[in-house]
């Protein structure tokens, strides 16, 4: 009996995982990352930017959430921070092309959605899509 319950739960888990893998919606139909964006993504990881910054609220809390910094502040503004750092943010001594690929990566993230959920979609019973 116990084994049966366990196996049924596990099967449900497997099916659910498959659904998640196949149907994680990208409502904005963002195209897959090109080489340039991928290089930026790799740099994001190599420099461990996520230890201080969040994307969709996930990551470290020392710096601001960067999900929508591209549309909020623009590429020029980002370039200054990324290239030179500030007193609080370290200077990673990145060259121009590295800086550009990081900006492309963050611009790509920006297209995927907004980090802040609008109050109108949050209800006591859950979250609606519109």
């Amino acid at each position: 009996m116990l084994v049966k319950i366990w196996v049924s739960l596990f099967l449900a888990f497997a099916v659910y995982s498959w659904l998640v893998y196949m149907h994680t919606e990208d409502r904005n139909n963002v195209p897959p990352p090109d080489r340039h964006i991928q290089a930026g993504w790799q740099l994001w990881q190599d420099k461990n930017c996520q230890s201080c910054h969040q994307l969709y609220g996930l990551g470290g809390y020392m710096g601001p959430d960067l999900t929508n910094v591209y549309s909020d502040k623009g590429a020029k503004y980002m370039q200054t921070f990324i290239k030179y750092g500030t007193g609080k943010m370290p200077d990673f001594h990145l060259n121009d092309s590295e800086t550009q690929s990081l900006i492309s990566f963050l611009a790509w993230i920006d297209k995927s959605g907004k980090s802040k959920i609008p109050a109108s979609v949050v209800h006591w019973w859950g979250i609606s899509s519109k």
Partner: peptide
């Protein structure tokens, strides 16, 4: 078994902010 069910299906509360299907978020909430 309740704990196991939560292990398998409740992780979505980490990503309420991520704009994917609401079924993922509402399953996690329930």
């Amino acid at each position: 078994f309740l704990g196991l069910t939560n292990l398998m299906f409740n992780w979505g509360h980490h990503i309420y902010n991520v704009p994917n299907g609401s079924w993922i978020r509402n399953t996690a909430y329930a």
